[in-house]
Design a binder for these strands. Structure first.
Lengths: 119, 119
DNA sequence: GATCTATATTGACATAGGTCGATCCTGGAC
DNA sequence: GTCCAGGATCGACCTATGTCAATATAGATC
């Protein structure tokens, strides 16, 4: 019988891993989520009745300085998780709906139970 | 009529934002996902037929040094995304099924469309 | 125009994090 | 026991990042 007992360490692939480009794109977004302040910012925006929050809402929710909040907002905006709109003196931030939904769809795709065919 | 036109910047809250502790926990895991190498590692493990990959599978998939891969594996293990098991000379890594599934569940919960009541 | 307020940008600082070479540890083969 | 191979740990390096005070910008009001 031609089956080697334990001389082989590696097992065959059943699917396609992420390629370099895709993993780099995803990592950018996950990295933006990898900060507790930014996660709270997102949840505060989402928790607002009309789906938007102005910067004053956000600075009031933290003990951090206003430039720090502004920096985090920029990070979230740069990766496409937030958009901003100026109205009168204030700037309002909203979630980008597709963005978080896509991420949420990616994660199960990596799971063996749900992401692959025969399981 | 007692409604102020635009002198108010802030809007009322409709839900509960993440608290400090929860956002810190989540941020740890998202931070671990915020690296392209670690994302590829996860996807490589998930892509293997039996749901596990040994370190030699992983080092072979990158041009990085073996200590660097080992470091990334430790990060993923520390946040509970991977488990490891030694068999003979090799160490095999598997995904922790619940871990990614929970994350995937958290993201839509932050979205206004699906996470809140009346939308 | 001048002035005030809300937000963004800049620059500096300290800490965190990714990478490597060198070394250590562990298990199998001899 | 010795030796070797797979993998983890250590220490050093450099870059990235979170934070702040100071400053700049934009809009509203006067």
């Amino acid at each position: 019988m031609p089956d080697l007992p334990l001389l082989e360490c590696c097992s065959p692939l059943a699917g396609e891993p992420l390629d370099d480009q895709r993993s780099a794109e995803l990592a950018r977004v996950f990295k933006a989520l990898g900060d507790p302040v930014r996660l709270r910012i997102l949840s505060i925006v989402a928790a607002h009745e009309n789906g938007e929050a102005c910067v004053c809402d956000l600075t009031a929710a933290f003990t951090l300085s206003q430039p720090t909040i502004s920096h985090h907002l920029k990070v979230l905006k740069d990766v496409g998780l937030l958009t901003s709109e100026r109205r009168a003196s204030w700037v309002y931030y909203r979630l980008v709906p597709h963005a978080l939904a896509e991420l949420s769809a990616v994660l199960p795709a990596v799971l063996p139970e749900s992401g692959r065919a025969g399981r």
